Every structure is written in C-alpha cells, then in structure tokens.
Simulated scan of single mutants.
Amino acid sequence: MPRSTIANRRAIQFDKSLELRDYAAVAISASTTETALTFPATKLKAYKAVVDVAAHTGYVATSAQWDITVEAALTSGGTYKTVGAFTATGVQNRFDVPLSGEWVDDIVADAAYIRVKAVKTGSPGNLTYGAFLAPCC
C-alpha cells in the first residue's frame, strides 16, 4: 500500500498572548491559581486549552494528585467557575480541554476572563506544567 505524501497537519498553533501558564516557569509545590487572561470565552465557536504536564513523582489516585482546572469568570476579580478539568497522573502528557463559546456561556454568562488552576491533594511531587488557548476542530 503506498504511503501518503500529505504532511502532518496536526501541529497546534501557539500564540504567546493566549498563554495561561508558561511551561518554563518554576515547578509548583502547592495549589496555585494563575493570573486570568482577558479572553472573549463566550464569543468563539470552538477552541481548546492545551495543557502540557511534565512527569512528577508520588501520584496515587484520589490521595496524592494534581487536579488542573480551566476556569472562566465575568470579571477579573469575580467568581470563577470550572469549564474544564482533568487529573495529572504522574506521567508526561498533553491534555486538550475542548471548549466552546456556547459551553462556557452556559456556565458563566458573558465570561470575559479565563485562567488555569492546579490543586494539590496529598503529597505528590512538584508540578511543572504549561497551558495555552488554541483554535480547535
């Protein structure tokens, strides 16, 4: 069977202005909320939060883990609600958190800010991770 000559088109666009957390930042050792990004979260059809997580030690499901959430709010200092979430399992991985304007608007009407938060349960090792928003689908 002949192999395709079509190039790999799965590259993900990275725009520094849509970065939620720099992967090169110092690893965190405690629950941390990142600075919110002004973003018209409810106005776009489809996008995603791309979260890259480095390997870390000490993962034990439910008792020693890092939970990472993507949150949205109407104002920078407002009440943030989770619009996407996952648990890092100690292995290096990339997580795509699909989002849409309709989904976010159902949770936080007219949300204009988005951020990521990592919550530590128990005593897993320090966490290195980065996150950014990118076009989806």
Rank of each mutant, 00 (worst) to 15 (best):
A111C: 12
N126G: 12
T128P: 01
T35G: 13
V97R: 04
R21M: 11
F14K: 11
K45W: 05
K81D: 10
S4I: 12
M1F: 04
W66Y: 11
G125W: 08
N93G: 08
T42R: 01
A134L: 13
V60Q: 09
T35E: 14
T82V: 11
V26D: 05
D96C: 02
V119N: 02
V51W: 04
W103I: 01
T62F: 06
R3M: 08
R94C: 09
T89P: 03
W66V: 13
R10V: 09
P98M: 02
A88K: 00
A72V: 09
G58Q: 14
C136E: 10
K45L: 11
T38C: 02
N8K: 00
A36I: 06
A41W: 07
A64Y: 08
L44W: 06
V51F: 02
L44C: 04
A11H: 11
V53C: 11
V119G: 01
Y129S: 05
V116D: 02
L127M: 02
A109Y: 09
A24H: 07
A46R: 10
A112K: 14
T33Q: 14
M1Q: 08
D52Q: 03
D22H: 06
A11N: 03
Q65W: 04
T57E: 15
A54Y: 03
D110E: 12
I68L: 10
A11I: 02
Y47F: 15
A27P: 14
D105R: 00
T75K: 05
K120L: 12
E19W: 00
L127D: 01
S4W: 02
A24L: 10
A41T: 00
C137L: 07
M1K: 07
D22A: 09
A72F: 04
G90Y: 09
A11F: 09
A73F: 13
S31H: 00
L20R: 01
W66G: 07
H56G: 06
Y47P: 05
A61F: 10
E19Y: 09
G130C: 10
T35H: 06
D15A: 12
R21T: 05
Y59G: 13
T57G: 14
Q65I: 00
T75M: 08
F132E: 01
P98Q: 11
A41S: 13
K16R: 13
C137S: 13
F132M: 08
W103G: 07
D22V: 12
A55N: 14
L44T: 03
A27F: 01
A55Q: 14
Q65V: 06
R21L: 04
K16V: 07
T69G: 00
T38M: 09
E19I: 00
G84T: 09
T79S: 15
G130A: 11
A30T: 11
R115E: 03
W103E: 11
T33H: 03
F132T: 04
A85N: 13
Y47H: 01
